[in-house]
Simulated scan of single mutants.
Amino acid sequence: MSSHTATPSATFVSTPVVLTIAGSDSGGGAGIQADIKAMSATGSYACSVITAITAQNTLGVSAIFPIPLEHVEKQLDAVFTDLNVVAVKVGMLADSETIKLVAAKLKQYHPEFLVVDPVMVATSGDLLLKTSAIDTLKSELLPLADLITPNLPESAALTNSPLPTDDLSMRAMVEKLRQLNLKAVLLKGGHLEKEDNSTDLLIFDDRIEEFTAKRIQTLNTHGTGCTLSSAIASYLAQGNDLLRAVKLGKNYISHAIAHADELQIGQGYGPVNHFFKGHRDIV
């Protein structure tokens, strides 16, 4: 007769689930890889739907392979029919058909929160989406979002405006963004490199919340947009309201950039430091 030692009942902690729908970065600094790191570092469980595979490193992108539409759909169904997804972050979408599919699935499954980082413009300034796809993004996906997080080139593309070159022209874009009739826009001013400070504007219909931080001089800024939007989605999933989620996300990305030079990754523009010392203590 054998005896068995009883083990104590396990204590389960409910971890908020956050889904990233984006492209893969083989170099690990941006896209799906950055999203998963940011969500994990900020205390959420990350799952993913890959929309494109890029051949990419710190020196640039050499190839992009869009995932067939049918397989994007199967990934979405697989995640949503099993996992309790609270928040979704959307990044790179390859074309109009992918945008339409993602929008339809989000309407079908109704996640509580949606953050869209409208990845449309490469660092070189080249458009990554055709004009027709940008129109589809504006009509089908952006109206579903609780927050969109465009940088200045993306904001210019969304509003058919000249690229802002200083703080004044950046602020002049606010009303044009409001005309898109979205719930909230985080207009990121990181591209104004001549400014001593980096200022982001959280734009609502009735007010603007301003976030200003001292500009950090580093070449390791690859994946900052992906990281910030993912951190905000993570903090929303944890029960924070939008303003606090943005504040926490901004605090996290500022620390990740400040600690970026502690990493020596690649020969070009390296990644931010997602797992800097003390990342779990961000409040």
Rank of each mutant, 00 (worst) to 15 (best):
G28T: 06
I203K: 00
V116R: 00
V61L: 08
V86E: 06
A46I: 09
T159L: 12
Q264S: 15
I208C: 08
L141I: 09
P68H: 03
S96C: 11
D206V: 12
L186F: 07
T51H: 15
N151S: 08
S62F: 04
I282H: 09
L219R: 14
G190T: 01
A258G: 15
S161W: 07
T5S: 09
L137W: 13
V61S: 02
H4I: 15
R178V: 02
E97G: 02
P150V: 01
L141V: 08
A103V: 03
T81K: 13
K107V: 14
L201A: 05
N197K: 14
L101N: 14
I32L: 05
G189Y: 00
A78G: 12
D166M: 06
K89R: 04
L142G: 08
H222W: 08
E70C: 01
A41K: 03
S9G: 10
S230R: 01
T221N: 03
F204W: 11
D95W: 00
L186Y: 09
L201N: 08
V115A: 00
L101F: 15
A156Y: 07
L147C: 12
L177T: 11
V49T: 14
K214V: 14
L158K: 02
S230N: 08
N273H: 15
V79M: 05
H279F: 12
T159D: 10
H255A: 06
V17H: 11
I67A: 08
L69E: 04
P150N: 13
D77A: 09
A87G: 12
H71P: 00
I53S: 00
R244L: 09
V121Q: 05
G268W: 03
L147R: 05
K100F: 07
L248R: 00
S169G: 04
S3N: 14
I99Y: 10
S2G: 06
H4F: 11
K100Y: 01
S48W: 03
G249Y: 04
P271F: 08
I216R: 07
Q238C: 12
A156D: 07
D77H: 15
